[in-house]
C-alpha cells in the first residue's frame, strides 16, 4: 500500500477537429465518428473554463442545442444524462447518441432547426499534459489540508479526468482514503455527484465531509 497521495494536475491544449454542426442531425452524425477525446472535452470543458460560476449547462452539446437551436427539451434531456452512470467514453457517447436519436424519432417530419451563422457547433478535443504538482499528503489530515490549496485543475484531474481515463467507478480520492482506512469518508465522496457543482463548490463540499 502506498501511503503517500501525490496530487497531480493537468494543462490542456485544445484542438479543433474541423468538424462542425449546423443542425442536430449534423451533430448526431459527427458524434458517431468523432474521437473519444472530443466527447470527453465537450462534456467536461465548461467545468474548467468556468470553474468559479454555476452554469445552466455544463455539457456543451446541451448548451448549443438550447442556445443556438432553441431546442430546450432535447437540451435538458442531454444535460440530464447521469455522467456517473458511465465509466467509459464509449458508453457516454452511446447515451448521448441514444438520447438524440430518440428525440429525432419522436419529432419525425418536423423541420430541422439550423444554427444561425456564426453559431455553428465546432467539435474540439484536448491534448492533456499531466504532471505532478509536488504537493503530497501522508495523512488524512494532511490530505484535507492540501485539498484547500490545490488548483481547481488538480481537483478536476483527480475527480473527473482520472475516473473516466482509468475507468474507475470512484475518484482517486476515494481509492486512497479507503486504503488509508477512512472508508466512511471515501463512501461519502463516492456518493457525491461532482457534476452537480462548480469546482470551487466541489472543493468545499469534499472538505466538509471531513468534519
Amino acid at each position: 500500500m502506498n501511503n503517500v497521495f501525490r496530487f497531480f494536475t493537468e494543462r490542456r491544449l485544445v484542438e479543433a477537429t474541423g468538424l462542425r454542426a449546423v443542425t442536430v442531425r449534423d451533430m448526431l452524425a459527427h458524434l458517431k465518428k468523432v474521437g473519444g477525446a472530443s466527447i470527453f472535452y465537450h462534456t467536461h470543458a465548461s467545468y474548467i473554463e468556468h470553474h468559479f460560476v454555476r452554469q445552466r449547462f455544463y455539457n456543451d452539446f446541451a448548451s448549443w442545442i438550447s442556445g443556438a437551436l432553441q431546442e430546450h427539451k432535447l437540451a435538458e434531456k442531454i444535460a440530464g444524462i447521469d455522467m456517473l452512470d458511465y465509466t467509459t467514453i464509449t458508453d457516454l457517447r452511446n447515451a448521448i447518441i441514444k438520447t438524440i436519436t430518440q428525440d429525432l424519432n419522436e419529432r419525425k417530419g418536423e423541420r430541422a432547426r439550423k444554427a444561425p451563422p456564426g453559431e455553428e457547433f465546432h467539435f474540439c478535443k484536448a491534448k492533456n499534459f499531466v504532471f505532478p504538482t509536488g504537493i503530497e499528503a501522508r495523512t488524512i489530515d494532511e490530505f484535507f489540508e492540501c485539498l484547500r490549496h490545490i488548483s481547481p485543475l488538480s481537483l478536476y484531474f483527480h475527480v473527473f479526468e482520472s475516473r473516466l481515463r482509468l475507468q474507475r467507478t470512484t475518484s482517486d480520492f476515494a481509492v486512497w482514503l479507503t486504503d488509508m482506512g477512512a472508508r466512511d469518508i471515501a463512501e461519502k465522496i463516492n456518493r457525491l455527484d461532482p457534476y452537480a457543482f462548480n469546482l470551487e463548490e466541489l472543493r468545499e463540499r469534499i472538505i466538509s465531509l471531513y468534519k
Binding site: 494543462r11 491544449l13 474521437g35 477525446a37 478535443k125 491534448k127 499534459f129 481515463r165
Partner: peptide
C-alpha cells in the same frame, strides 16, 4: 505563454491525447 510551451511539447511528441510529463 503556457499554451506556447505546451505546443512545443506537443510538436515533439505527436499522437497521444494524453502526455505525461
Amino acid at each position: 505563454l503556457k499554451d506556447y510551451l505546451l505546443l512545443m511539447i506537443a510538436l515533439e511528441r505527436d499522437g497521444s491525447d494524453v502526455i505525461e510529463l
